[in-house]
Amino acid sequence: MFYVIAFINIINFILFRIDKRKAVKHQRRIPESTLLSFTFLGGTLGALLGMIVFRHKISKRNFLIKFGFIVLIQAAFIYLYGKYS
């Protein structure tokens, strides 16, 4: 399971880099739904690092709200998994 999560985080970090590069070059971007889907699937750390390192999506309030909601869902899942396992 560790390797799967690590792989998803690396992919998500790379996706944030690619999307930032495309944004700077005014090219077609990676959809937010794709970025958020990888985040939801376990790529939260990769997304957070991508946001900080590449200064990408940090001023987009709508994206940050969705990102925060995903983090809350994941935290609740981890809490409930730990409580009932």
Rank of each mutant, 00 (worst) to 15 (best):
I8F: 07
F54T: 04
I73S: 00
I18D: 05
R61F: 08
Y84T: 13
T39V: 06
M1I: 12
S33T: 15
V53Q: 05
G50N: 05
H26Q: 13
L80D: 10
I70L: 12
F40P: 11
Y84R: 10
L80Y: 15
A47K: 02
S85F: 15
V4E: 10
N9I: 04
F38N: 00
L36T: 13
T44F: 13
R55D: 12
S33Q: 15
A75T: 14
Y84I: 11
V24Q: 04
I30E: 04
Q27N: 11
M51G: 05
R21K: 13
R28Q: 12
A6C: 10
Q27E: 05
R29M: 13
V71N: 09
N12G: 02
T34F: 13
L48W: 08
S33G: 11
F16W: 13
I10G: 01
R21P: 00
N9R: 07
G42A: 06
N12F: 06
F67C: 03
N62R: 15
F40T: 13
K66C: 08
F40Q: 04
V71R: 00
R55C: 04
K83N: 07
I73Y: 07
V24P: 00
L72Q: 07
K60R: 14
I65N: 10
R28P: 10
F54D: 02
Y81P: 00
E32G: 09
K83C: 08
R61K: 14
K66W: 15
F16T: 03
H56W: 06
L45K: 13
K66Q: 08
F40K: 07
V71Q: 05
I70R: 10
K57Q: 10
V4H: 06
N62C: 01
F77P: 11
G43E: 02
S37G: 15
K60G: 04
G43H: 03
G42H: 06
L49D: 01
F7C: 06
K66E: 07
K83R: 14
R55Y: 14
V24G: 00
K25C: 09
Q74W: 12
A6W: 14
I10K: 02
T39H: 07
H56I: 13
F2Q: 08
L36I: 09
V53G: 03
N62K: 14
G43T: 11
H26N: 15
V4W: 05
I5S: 00
F54A: 05
R55G: 04
L64N: 07
I18K: 01
K22L: 03
T44L: 05
G42D: 03
I65W: 06
I73V: 15
I30H: 09
F7W: 14
R21D: 10
S59R: 14
L15D: 03
G46C: 00
G68P: 02
I18R: 03
L64C: 14
F7R: 00
I10T: 06
I18N: 01
L15M: 02
L64Q: 08
P31K: 11
A75V: 15
L48T: 06
F69G: 04
I73W: 09
G46E: 02
H26E: 15
S85Q: 11
F63V: 01
I14T: 03
I58N: 15
I11W: 03
F67S: 04
F7T: 15
